[in-house]
Simulated assay, not measured.
Amino acid sequence: MSDLTAEGGHGAVPTGPEVPTGTGKAARRDWPLYEVFVRGKRGLNHVHVGSLHAPDDEMAVHAARDLYTRRNEGVSIWVVKATHITASSPDEKDPMFAPSGDKVYRHPTFYEIPDDVPHI
């Protein structure tokens, strides 16, 4: 019996040595991890909705559609290989973002907003 993993939060995936590899393709446990972003019908931005493993980019888009837009929630899907994402660490929060705190001119408190400017 094969081992199971829920890596990426998308459910149990067989990972044992007896998992069939198909027609010369890598075993499922060797598929790259993709991060999935979906733009909703009412939203303006793509939002991270989860992760999945897929053998290639095209299959990742199809799997993301099947997993994360089952109820017509989205109008656009992005999939990105997790290895292509570079992110800051939460431990670096203070050194990374603290320098912007001393730039008070970036805050709108120094500017007069005309009365005829809407939505501010």
Score class of each variant (00 low, 15 high):
A82P: 04
A64V: 06
D94T: 12
I85N: 00
T69I: 08
A87E: 11
S76P: 03
G74C: 11
R71W: 05
R70T: 15
I85K: 05
G74E: 02
S88Q: 03
A82I: 02
E73C: 02
K93W: 14
V80W: 01
N72P: 00
R65L: 05
A87W: 00
N72W: 04
Y68W: 08
P90G: 01
A64Q: 03
V79S: 04
I77G: 01
P95W: 08
P90T: 11
A64S: 08
V75H: 08
N72K: 13
R65E: 14
T86M: 09
T69V: 14
R70Y: 06
E92D: 15
R65W: 08
T83R: 12
A82N: 15
P90M: 02
D91M: 10
S76T: 08
D94C: 07
T86S: 11
D66R: 14
K81F: 00
I85W: 01
R65I: 03
H84C: 11
E92T: 13
E73N: 08
A64R: 01
L67R: 13
G74K: 04
A64H: 01
S76Q: 12
Y68R: 03
T83K: 13
R70F: 03
P95H: 01
S89D: 15
E73F: 07
W78P: 01
V80I: 14
S88R: 07
S88E: 01
R71T: 12
V75I: 15
T83S: 15
W78D: 09
E92V: 09
H84K: 11
E92S: 14
I77K: 02
A82V: 09
R70A: 12
E73V: 06
W78C: 04
